[in-house]
Amino acid sequence: MNWLLLAGSLAGVLGLALVARLLGLGEEARIVNAEHALAVADEVDSGFDPVAVAVDRAGYAALLRDRVGQLLLIRAHGGHFVGRRLMPPVEARLDRNQLTLTPDDPMFGSVTLNLGAHAAEWASRMRNMGDVGTMTDA
């Protein structure tokens, strides 16, 4: 292996990423409203048919529920969105207006949604449906 070539390639990789940052490339996606959340959910998981939606106040994420109580969590990932169905038991934490959910996918990460007064409603519904495995109220 040509170590000089390898070092040059690594420098090239880091250099191009730095140029992308210096040019101000990239954008942060945000969920504008409930209708937008529904559209995003359909793109992320076309088999999910939501009947209720809660959007984080900053637009970073949204939580959706279908007729049988299944939950879909969507969040921003750079300029796009990703989603995960929350399989019971769901790990959740309620802290006043903020609901933090942790999908069963460690690389997806926990997501905190500021849902205002609705946070407690969603947490309560999840608890009543037995969806929640671990629920802590701060």
Partner: peptide
Amino acid sequence: GRHRYDPKDTL
């Protein structure tokens, strides 16, 4: 269109 790239994704 700055959205066409994302520095982290590029890296």
